[in-house]
């Protein structure tokens, strides 16, 4: 596992991270509104005190864990990852966090578990987007178990060494750098180990446009826009578009997960 992570680190060595301000002011977090600056404007109301994560399903040690319980003994590291939104924009984010695999090891994944399902907190009184029901809540996402256990898959608790800003998914969120950003679910309150592919929010809303896998793939267009190139956030008025990389540049690390799969069909 260390070797793979090491390689990924090396590959991201030349990446120039976005500023903290960029990362914390341009967000999709529909619970706080659909505009890009709505989350930064509204997420101050998110209550992250006494945060609990329910771990259930096919695990040896199910239960309601506090953030401290979960992260205790795990090695926190900085991972500088490309972040590619399905809307064809991208950033580079220096996350702080630990591997999801280590967290799952704490809970003890049972034989037979094949998928991991995640759920975002719902605080209607603090979330204007939830009150307006812009999409169905709670927001849910999922990964295949091998994707979840991959050493690149991170549970992030901070950015630039600072605690995770609320608008970025405080206090703890998923980061799957080779998938479109909406897979990297924010403000997680539940993690379930299950046997069947779990429902995921955007897939339920529009399966033709948002697949369960949603791996970054410049060859497979979103039905309404091309995914061949992306606009890099923070480049100013005259920044050129940049070519999108297969698996967002992590092809060497993750392509093997999808050996033999038709990626145009399993988009």
């Amino acid at each position: 596992a260390g070797a793979v992570a090491g390689r990924a680190q090396a590959a991201t060595g030349e990446l120039e991270p976005n500023s903290f301000e960029d990362i914390a002011s341009y967000n999709n977090y529909y619970e706080f509104g659909t505009g890009k600056n709505d989350p930064a404007a509204n997420a101050g109301a998110l209550d992250t005190s006494d945060w609990k994560i329910e771990i259930d399903g096919m695990v040896d040690r199910p239960g309601s864990y506090s953030l401290n319980d979960l992260t205790e003994g795990l090695t926190e590291e900085e991972r500088i990852y490309r972040f590619r939104c399905v809307e064809a924009w991208s950033m580079v984010v220096p996350w702080n966090g630990f591997e999801l695999a280590d967290l799952l090891a704490k809970a003890g994944v049972q034989e037979g578990a094949r998928y991991v399902a995640f759920e975002t907190v719902v605080q209607p009184e603090n979330m204007p987007g939830v009150k307006r029901n812009v999409i169905p809540f709670p927001y849910v996402e999922g990964l295949r178990l091998d994707e979840a256990l991959h050493p690149l898959t991170l549970m992030a608790t901070g950015i630039y060494g600072k605690p995770m800003p609320n608008q970025n998914g405080a206090p703890i969120r998923l980061v799957v750098p080779w998938k479109y950003g909406f897979k990297s679910i924010k403000s997680i309150v539940r993690i379930s180990l299950v046997t069947d592919e779990p429902p995921t929010t955007w897939n339920k809303l529009n399966a033709r446009e948002y697949g369960f896998y949603s791996n970054v793939n410049p060859q497979v267009s979103h039905p309404r826009w091309s995914q061949a190139s992306e606009r890099v956030i923070g480049g100013g008025l005259f920044a050129k578009r940049q070519d999108t990389l297969m698996f967002n540049g992590y092809e060497e690390d993750v392509a093997a997960l999808y050996d033999g799969m038709d990626l145009a069909k399993n988009y």
């Binding site: 960029d22 341009y26 924009w89 606009r231 956030i233 100013g236 008025l237 920044a239």
Partner: peptide, 18 residues
């Protein structure tokens, strides 16, 4: 709006904002 975009007042993605 052009002035906002040039000075960063319209956020980190001035092109989309404009």
């Amino acid at each position: 709006w052009l002035w906002q975009g040039a000075t960063g007042a319209s956020g980190p993605e001035p092109i989309k904002a404009l």
